[in-house]
Amino acid sequence: MKTNPNLKLRKLGAKYIIVQASADAVDMSNVYTMNASAAYLWERAAKDPGIDLTAEIFAAWLVEEYDIDNATASADAAEIFETWTEMGLIQ
């Protein structure tokens, strides 16, 4: 899995966002908001498109960057990975 190269992470107010043209509706865009840690994962993933992303890799990155335990990291990473896959942010 890799981050969709057409998507750009932006900061808006206190949130990070990705705006993606909707695949279903011709005239709509989807706005995804993420917090700082999800944004961190995105930027790190986008920087190295050679990596095949997995929830485990995300968890490892979270543990590296933030002071959290493996269980929390795994849970957060799994949720982020699943959401992003579902939404087509990573493919």
Partner: peptide, 9 residues
């Protein structure tokens, strides 16, 4: 912010 973007986009 995001609310405004969603109103306008």
């Amino acid at each position: 912010d995001v609310d405004a973007l969603n109103q306008v986009l």
